[in-house]
């Protein structure tokens, strides 16, 4: 049975990202993730929050980003929510990494990192709220 273990709300400012990373590392360690898995989840959540702040809120600093951690039997699930512009992955083609590198793209690597650093990554929009759910299993291989 999942239970909400931690909750953090930050203003939509990139200066808050270091705080998010510190919290996620504490939560992951408390949840029993290995150092490598905790660091992977920390980075994936950082990318999700940065996307919310920079793209969903587009530079507005009066938005809010909620970060919630749910402890499950075999995993830690972190959900990042915001009420900025929704991101619908169905409407976006995530370019192949080789293409992005060949074209010297500056943006878009965060999504790849989120995918590679988590065991499960889901996007959902409900009403005005968009969320990204990032799952890291204990002893996961990602």
């Amino acid at each position: 049975m999942a239970r909400c273990t931690h909750h953090l709300t930050i203003p939509s400012r990139t200066s808050q990202l270091a705080r998010v990373r510190r919290c996620v590392m504490e939560w992951a360690t408390e949840a029993g993730l290995s150092d490598a898995d905790a660091q992977a989840l920390q980075m994936a959540v950082d990318e999700a929050c940065a996307n919310a702040i920079e793209h969903a809120y587009g530079g507005r600093t009066d938005g809010r980003v909620e970060v919630e951690a749910m402890m499950k039997r075999d995993a830690l699930v972190v959900t990042v929510r915001h009420k900025g512009e929704p991101f619908d992955p169905k409407l976006h083609t995530i370019s192949a990494l080789t293409t992005m590198r060949d074209q010297r793209r500056i943006h878009g690597y965060g999504l790849h990192l989120m995918q590679r650093l988590t065991d499960d990554l889901r996007f959902r929009t409900k009403g005005k709220t968009s969320e990204v759910r990032l799952t890291k299993r204990r002893n996961g291989s990602a």
């Binding site: 990373r21 980075m43 990318e47 010297r104 500056i106 943006h107 878009g108 690597y109 965060g110 790849h112």
Partner: peptide, 16 residues
Amino acid sequence: QYISSAGLGVFMAFVE
């Protein structure tokens, strides 16, 4: 101690 995709993007912006 840490780099995110935003940091990587800076390398990419200048290398060419």
